[in-house]
Amino acid sequence: MDPSPRGSVQRYGAVLALIVVTVAVVLVAQRTLHLPGWLNPFAETTKDRSGPALLESIRDLSRYEAAGGDFQVIVDLEKDSKYLPSAIRGTRTLFVGSGSVNAYVDFSKLNSGAVRVSEDRKTATIVLPHAQLDRASLDPKASYAVSTSRGLTNRLGDALSGNPNNQQQLYVLAAQKIQDAAARSGLQAHADRNTRSMLVNMLGALGFTSVTVQVGAVR
């Protein structure tokens, strides 16, 4: 054996080279042979260290969910610089947003004269407000970016920022477009019909022979 410092360096170099080769072989085998993850020294593990959810408040619900609609929208968002070409500064993203909107009738707005019942309890008249649309709810699992093109300065900025994949604006735009689509879809009218049918059937089961439901008369 060579006891000189040069010999020690050579031995350490040989050991280091052997470690590098071993790791490379394991990584290649992991990718090509689909070996178990425990053989990969660089395999990632995920641990959820989040604390428990805290109840902040409880509220009473006084509305009837009468209908719901599922929507999908494609957002094509492009941002350009006024004086620079898009290859230098600019972004364009195609984003698929999937979400739902519920239509409901708020029974808390009924006044004392909204329900009128005859003395023989055979006839009932109910005055209801029109159904309202809830806020659009986007499904994060079904919403995704299809493609993204970025200029040179945008790519550099994303690399230096702490959140290069911020898609908040895309989610906001998708939710607004779904909300607008729900308002044009006839979902509220469908909810009005469902609410009227529910009340007629329910009161009919209670023995009422004549049930009149007036929708939209409450102001």
Rank of each mutant, 00 (worst) to 15 (best):
M1N: 04
M1P: 05
P3E: 06
S4H: 12
P5H: 08
P5E: 13
Q10A: 09
V21I: 15
V21L: 15
V21T: 15
V25T: 13
L27C: 00
V28L: 07
R31M: 10
T32L: 14
L33W: 12
L33S: 08
L35H: 08
P41I: 03
A43G: 12
A43Y: 10
T45I: 05
T46C: 12
T46R: 14
G51M: 06
A53N: 08
L54R: 06
L54S: 03
L55T: 11
E56P: 01
L61K: 14
S62T: 15
Y64K: 00
Y64G: 00
E65D: 15
E65M: 12
F71H: 10
Q72C: 06
D76N: 13
L77M: 06
E78I: 09
K82P: 02
Y83T: 12
P85L: 01
G90L: 04
G90I: 09
G97H: 00
Y104D: 11
K109C: 08
N111L: 02
S112D: 08
G113A: 11
A114G: 05
L128Y: 04
P129Q: 13
A131V: 05
L133R: 04
R135N: 11
A136V: 00
K141E: 12
K141V: 08
A142K: 15
A145M: 07
S147A: 08
S149E: 15
L152A: 13
N154S: 11
D158C: 10
L160R: 04
L160V: 08
N165H: 13
N165F: 03
Q169T: 02
L170N: 07
V172F: 09
L173F: 07
L173K: 14
Q176V: 11
K177A: 13
R184M: 11
H190Y: 03
D192V: 00
R196A: 09
R196W: 06
S197N: 12
L199M: 03
L203Y: 07
G204M: 05
L206S: 15
G207L: 10
V211N: 01
V213D: 09
A217D: 14
R219E: 14
